[in-house]
Simulated scan of single mutants.
Amino acid sequence: MLQVNEYFNGTVKSIALENAEGNATIGVMEIGEYEFGTATIEHMTVTSGTLLVQLPGETEWKTFNKGETFIVEKDVKFKVKAEMQVAYHCLYV
């Protein structure tokens, strides 16, 4: 069954699924800065646009472009900045 998620007053939206390959979401973000928490390890791939990411314990922002993936550990918080609308795929491990 698909589940629709909405965060930050509707500026981040995703559709989640669970199948034989695991749990995943496909989502979109409006321009803005957001902080997320993780409950599992997350593999996040930018599928459209560019996303600036500040991973836990780091002070610098790293740029991830279309097709690039970053990994976030379990039970941490991380920040992202979207300077344009961004689409992403997130695989929960």
Rank of each mutant, 00 (worst) to 15 (best):
I71A: 01
T25C: 03
V12D: 00
F64V: 01
N23M: 07
Q54R: 13
S48N: 15
Y34G: 02
A39L: 05
E73T: 00
T47W: 06
E58N: 14
V80Q: 03
I26M: 12
Q85M: 11
E30D: 14
E30S: 14
G27Q: 07
E73G: 01
S48L: 15
T45P: 10
H89R: 01
T63L: 12
D75C: 08
I15S: 00
I26V: 15
V86E: 05
E83D: 08
K79I: 07
T47A: 07
I15Y: 02
V4P: 03
G57I: 00
V28A: 09
A87E: 13
T59I: 09
K13L: 06
E60C: 14
A24W: 09
V86G: 06
A24D: 01
T59Y: 07
K77N: 11
N65L: 03
K81Y: 10
E21H: 14
I31Q: 13
V80S: 01
V80Y: 03
G57N: 00
E73Y: 00
A24E: 05
C90L: 08
F64H: 08
V80C: 05
N19R: 01
Q54V: 07
E68R: 08
A87D: 10
K66N: 13
E6Y: 03
I15E: 02
N65C: 05
P56I: 04
F8D: 05
V86H: 04
T47C: 07
L55V: 09
E6F: 03
V28N: 07
K74D: 11
V76T: 11
T47G: 05
V4H: 14
H89E: 01
V4N: 11
T63D: 04
K13P: 05
K13R: 15
V93H: 02
